[in-house]
């Protein structure tokens, strides 16, 4: 899955992949094949794909608890991603990470991170290494509007600005930190916080993948020219729950009217409208086939051998058994 993200059709196709993947994952959560639930990315696809369209293969990303879209947008194999969600040995992380921790170093994914805001300094450190090596790599770090209120993000913004590091801070503002509306949780706004550190920032329509892509291209180009970090706030919306647990506990924090209104600006339809209907149908069919294969692959894959439960902790191969490391 290292196809490029160049044409309008490429962008649509990758968003379609993410949408379909999430629908499949939701089905497997309901059937019990995926335990622990997921944070579905449905509705936010344009952000991940738009940003990753501005990145080169060797560029790096960090992701969030709602990270499936980022991982697929950057180019991970959906079969191995799904196997990871289903806790299989063939998963990206050999079943040790799961939905919130997918990493795929081969395609520049340093890992999803389940602690809100925590990936930001990791991206800064990776960007420091990139700057030192002169590799020209940029690092995009995704976080939500909820992440704006974590002190660690502010520490990371400061360091990135001080050192003019090639970091692209991507705030996916989906309107809610779990159930708390952004307006009641964020004093000021994302752009203002970045600008306080002298970091250029822009708010864009996060439902339009080409708009996101264009903003990310500008920011990534700046970073490659060693002109330092930038922040993009992409206004988006999750069509589904914060987490699949919501299906059972029925949280009530937004209206159906609000959801319907955002659904009228479905990013797949916005981008789908830019390609011919026949082509769109062909891409949809292609993706359906890829996902059918992903499902077959994941469910046929072995679960990790329990004897390996303590493996991979230490590079030295040290294994803690009997209570002693």
């Amino acid at each position: 899955m290292t196809d490029g993200l160049h044409t309008p059709a490429d962008l649509y196709r990758r968003m379609r992949l993410i949408r379909g993947f999430e629908e499949l994952a939701l089905r497997l959560v309901k059937s019990g094949e995926i335990v622990g639930g997921i944070h579905p990315y449905i509705g936010e696809e344009a952000v991940a794909v738009g940003v990753c369209a501005a990145l080169a293969d060797h560029d790096l990303i960090t992701s969030t608890h709602r990270g499936h879209g980022h991982v697929l947008a950057k180019g991970s194999d959906p079969s191995r991603m799904l196997a990871e969600l289903a806790g299989r040995e063939t998963g990206l992380n050999r079943g040790r990470g799961g939905s919130m921790h997918a990493a795929d170093v081969a395609v520049g994914i340093l890992g999803a991170n389940a602690i809100v805001g925590a990936a930001a300094p990791i991206a800064v450190g990776a960007a420091w290494a990139a700057q030192r090596s002169g590799s020209g790599k940029v690092v995009a770090t995704f976080f939500g509007d909820g992440g704006l209120n974590q002190g660690v993000l502010l520490e990371a913004l400061n360091l990135a600005a001080l050192w003019q590091l090639p970091v692209l801070f991507v705030c996916e503002n989906n309107g809610y930190a779990t159930t708390m509306p952004t307006a009641t949780g964020v004093a000021g706004n994302a752009v203002g916080r970045a600008e306080a550190f002298g970091i250029p920032a822009v708010t864009v329509d996060g439902m339009d993948v080409e708009v996101v892509r264009d903003a990310a291209v500008l920011a990534a180009d700046r970073a490659r020219r060693a002109e330092g970090p930038a922040l993009i706030e992409a206004m988006t919306y999750r069509f589904g729950p914060h987490h699949t647990m919501e299906f059972r506990i029925r949280l009530s924090y937004r209206t159906q009217e609000e959801i319907d209104e955002w659904r009228r600006r479905d990013p797949l339809d916005i981008q789908g409208g830019r390609i011919a209907a026949g082509q769109r149908a062909r891409l949809d069919a292609e993706i359906a086939e890829i996902l059918a294969e992903a499902e077959r692959f994941a469910l046929a894959s072995p679960r990790p051998d329990p004897a390996g439960a303590l493996d991979y902790l230490y590079a030295s191969g040290m294994v803690a058994r009997g209570g002693v490391a």
Binding site: L110, I122, V124, G125, A126, W128
Partner: peptide, 10 residues
């Protein structure tokens, strides 16, 4: 956190 990211990047 930056030490961690730098370690990831070599």
């Amino acid at each position: 956190g930056a030490a961690m990211g730098a370690a990831m990047a070599g």
